[in-house]
Each structure stands twice: as C-alpha cells, then as structure tokens.
Design a protein around this nucleic acid. Structure first.
Lengths: 192, 192
DNA sequence: CGGGGTTTTAGACTCTGGGACGAAAACCGT
DNA sequence: ACGGTTTTCGTCCCAGAGTCTAAAACCCCG
C-alpha cells in the first residue's frame, strides 16, 4: 500500500510527501484495502482516491499504489518537497499517477478534486495548466466543460484585482464524484 | 491473482473458463507477479495481458485481477461456458475486464490482440462488433484505423466465398504491442 | 455469356467537437 | 476621461468520424 497524493497549486503539480517520502501502510489479512488506505493517506482531506497498480517493489514487498487528489484549498498536514529524491520505485509510481491524472482530465470530471468548491474560469484554467503541463485556453475550457455538463454557473461574481479587469463569473463542478464522459470515444454505436 | 481471458469469436466475446471457473494462482513472497500470472493463465497463448485491479474478495483473499486477450485463431486448452454461473466477485471482474477492453478499443490498438495476424476489414469488423456489442461500419473502421497508422495493407487478396462478392484486401496491425493513440483527448496542447 | 445478387471498396457529404482569433464588456488606476 | 487589464462572447475554421451512394469485382444460374 503506497499512496501518491497530488495537488495543483502555484502553477505546479505538487506531490505531498509527509516526512519527505510517499506514505505507506501494511495491509493486514482480510483487511479491506480502504482501511489500510486510510492509515496511509489522510483520506478525509482528499477529494478523490483511486487505485493505480499493484507491483513488486525492489525491496521485495508487494505494494498496491493509490492516487489521491487534494483540492488547492485543502488543509493538509505534512510538507512536500521535490520528488527527485525518491527511490526509483516510488518515482515511477509518481510518474504513473501524474500520467493517469493528465489523461483523466480530458475525459472525466476529475477536475473537481483539484479545484476549490467555487472558482472562476481563469482559476480553473490555472489548475489545468498546472496539472497538464501545457497551456490551456480559458475560452475553450469553459465551452468544453459546460457543454459536457461538468461545470455549472453559480450566483455571484468575483471582484477584479488591483490591476483591474472585468469581474469574473463563478462556477462549480456539477458533481463531486468521478464521472466519465460517455461516448468520448471513437467507434461509437450507430446513431439510429 | 485472478485472470480474465477474453476472446472474440462467432460474434460473441467469450470468457475462457478452464474447468468452468476463472483461473487463479497463489502469489508467493517476493515472487514477481508475472510468474504467478504464468501459472494461472497460459500467457504464451495470449496476445496481450494487462493488470486490472486489486481487491479483497468475499472469501477474504486479496486478489490482483488481470485481463488477457486471445486471438480468434489461438489454440487454447480448456473449455468456455457461459459466465453466468460465476461467483459474484468473479462476475464483477469479468464485467470490469469487458469494460476495459471496450474502452481501449477506441483509443488504442488492442484490436491486434483479438484479430488474427492477417484479416479483411469485414473480419475485423466482426471482431469489433463482438467486443463492443454494437454495430460498426466497416468503411469507418478502416478509415479510422488506417488514418491512425494502426492498420497496414498487406500483399494479396482474399477470394470471395460461395455467395460471390468482390475479393477483399488483406490488412494487419502495424504493431503487436499496446499503443495509445496520443492526442485522442480533449484539452490538447496548443498547436503553435 | 449475360444478368441478377453479393460483398467490398472508394468517394462525397455532413455533423460535431474543439482550437484560434478578435471584438466587446466591465473593471482598475492615474 | 483615458489607457491598460481581465473576462466574456461570438465567429471562423479544421479535423475526425458517421452516413450514404455508387462503382468495382466477384459468384451462380439460366
């Protein structure tokens, strides 16, 4: 049981490393994985958790890796440093976690687990840029997510900063559970 | 360690059940998962194998499930019956395996693991129909897969059957390893 | 050998989702 | 009031994929 907790903040996709390493826990016999997971990760503080893969680590232990996502405004204990100093096993898991997240941002609503409860499109754009590692058009992001029903407008506006600008509309994710955009795929069923 | 081996044949997506149940194996301490997997599944006869999920079964054992795909013309020992008589745990795993396969048919080249080495578009279409569970246009299938570089023409034609028809061109998959169609996703990086 | 039935192939048309662009809206500070 | 900023809205455009029709190439049968 190894957990990779990620958070998009300050333009970067942080890896949460309490004590400078990935959190681990031993899973007992007949113990539900969720129980061991709760010992390793602060599950209550994570907006989304999903299983990654199970593999034999170099030290001989069999580990099931999990991906955890924290909202930018979540209160978390533990520090986070650069993940460059991790052992090779763990570094690979971090890479797998990041790849999984990047892929799912495109065809699911996982964004809900990274963004705060309410936000402007620009703020959401920053989250996506941090997680994806490339630029994203705010205009397109809004259109795509609204069209899919992933994003909802919410009452009110955010006042502009000191440098001015038009007040921004506020949005939220329509759901706080993972939902896959159905029929995002090629080779769809015939329409009639 | 539980294996779900699938094969697309006779218009159906069969579950290979040697002895009427899903193949299992106990994974020893410090044993690579691939080794235990080889004991459970006839890996050599499978064109593709990938991990599904790890879960606690109702009988208290911790099992890592695998998805295996067999080509339609593969020689396999063991019979296969309807999967309706499986225990609930295993039935769920079969459903997960089928769902995974259906999804990956859209954005990867997994088809290579279901189709024979060389085939006509109509034959490939039958494989896709069996796996996806809905109709597929042969014209579309060819255009999509060729455009992606997944399919290659190969020398020769297949003679028509007794009922006549134009001879069919032969194709093969360009690769026999899993490859993900990059940039199938929404929220692509900017193009310039 | 010619005609009707069958299967495959090729092309054109259309629709939709998403990227790019530019103008308008609404604010700031000076 | 004016220029600079940020957000929003609308339009254009393109690529990928679904649909359709006709042509190609074969079979069998009379």
């Amino acid at each position: 049981m190894v957990g990779v907790a990620l958070r998009a903040r300050d333009g970067r996709l942080e890896v949460l490393l309490p004590g400078g390493r990935l959190p681990e826990a031993q899973v007992g016999p007949r113990e539900p994985l969720a129980a061991a997971l709760a010992r390793a990760l602060d599950v209550a503080a994570l907006a989304h958790v999903e299983q990654l893969e199970t593999r034999l680590l170099r030290d001989g232990r069999l580990a099931t890796a999990y991906l955890g996502l924290a909202r930018a405004d979540a209160k978390l204990g533990g520090d986070w440093r650069s993940e460059l100093a991790l052992p090779p096993d763990h570094a690979e898991l971090v890479a797998a976690a990041q790849a999984r997240l990047r892929a799912k941002l495109s065809y699911t609503n996982v964004g809900f687990a990274l963004a705060p409860a309410t936000f402007t499109i620009s703020e959401l754009r920053d989250v996506y840029v941090a997680a994806l590692g490339h630029d994203v058009s705010a205009t397109n992001l809004q259109r795509v997510l609204v069209r899919r029903g992933v994003l909802e407008r919410v009452e009110g506006l955010r006042a502009p900063g000191r440098s001015g600008g038009r007040p921004a509309a506020l949005f939220r994710f329509a759901s706080n559970q993972l939902e896959v955009t159905d029929e995002f795929a090629a080779l769809r069923p015939p329409q009639r």
